[in-house]
């Protein structure tokens, strides 16, 4: 536990010793702010128009701030995460391999699992800051409207789990190569596959379609943004994380017998 803590602190700090953390966090907040502005401003224009033209309400369904602002915001945040989180995870083991520091790390009395979890937690720390910095948008909605907090909390919980899943896959990819770009590309493409895999669900047969749907990130975030925390979605993300942490552990361990 102490080793884990030391590694976590070191990882977390090292993101700030290079520009990575600042760049990723800034871009994430700028992009999410931009999306939020467009969604929120669009919604308020629509609300004004609806005052004079009640038919609009019929056309768009209920003019509901949770439905029309919070839900699309969380959807876009997950898209931005898809692009930015591989940039955070790509260095974790690749850089250590490239610079040779892994030789010292693995000859310290630290288990492979502690090393992985330390890096995982360090990344999660940065990711938590990223998510927290989108919160002013939610507060703005709260000031001017009346969003449902259940949906917000469930939605952010969903995003948090999804980010953890992205990070676990990214760390696994970085154990495979000493090239950071390769790690980032592999992570991004795998995540993208999981992101869009449900697109072909409609074309496939019923059983395969359901499997494809179940594998997709989007399918599982959908219930979270409805304010529902379903155990099947929870277990999807948790299994995903555990699976890739396990693979990372195996990948590091294999170095000890493969040489």
């Amino acid at each position: 536990m102490r080793n884990f803590w030391c590694l976590f602190v070191k990882e977390f700090r090292s993101y700030f010793n290079s520009p990575i953390a600042f760049v990723v966090i800034t871009i994430f907040t700028v992009l999410s702010g931009y999306y939020f502005y467009n969604i929120f401003a669009g919604f308020s224009t629509l609300s004004f128009q609806a005052q004079t033209n009640p038919m609009l309400v019929k056309q768009y369904g209920a003019l509901n701030v949770t439905e029309s602002v919070i839900r699309p915001l969380i959807g876009t945040l997950s898209g931005v995460m898809l692009i930015l989180l591989p940039m955070l995870t790509m260095r974790s083991f690749s850089e250590e391999k490239k610079t040779g520091t892994i030789e010292l790390l693995l000859t310290y009395p630290v288990t492979d699992m502690e090393a992985i979890m330390g890096k995982f937690a360090g990344c999660m720390g940065i990711f938590a800051i990223m998510l927290a910095l989108t919160f002013p948008s939610i507060i703005l909605v709260e000031v001017f409207g009346d969003p449902e907090w259940g949906v917000i909390i469930a939605g952010y919980a969903g995003l948090f789990l999804m980010g953890a899943a992205f990070i676990s896959l990214g760390i696994f990819m970085s154990t495979l190569t000493e090239n950071q770009v390769v790690a980032a590309v592999l992570t991004f493409s795998c995540l993208l596959v999981f992101y869009i895999i449900s697109y072909s669900a409609g074309l496939a047969g019923e059983t395969i379609g359901r499997v494809l749907e179940y594998l997709s990130f989007n399918y599982h975030i959908r219930t979270f943004v409805k304010g529902v925390i379903d155990s099947s979605d929870l277990s999807y993300y948790l299994l995903f994380i555990i699976f890739f942490v396990f693979l990372s552990n195996r990948s590091l361990e294999s170095k000890r017998w493969r040489g």
């Binding site: 070191k10 700090r13 090292s14 040779g100 010292l104 000859t107 009395p109 630290v110």
Partner: peptide, 17 residues
């Protein structure tokens, strides 16, 4: 690993600390 101290040839240290 608890008993040893090791200095690899290339002296790989975390340069950003």
């Amino acid at each position: 690993r608890r008993k040893i101290g090791y200095l690899p040839e290339s002296v790989p240290l975390y340069t950003d600390m």
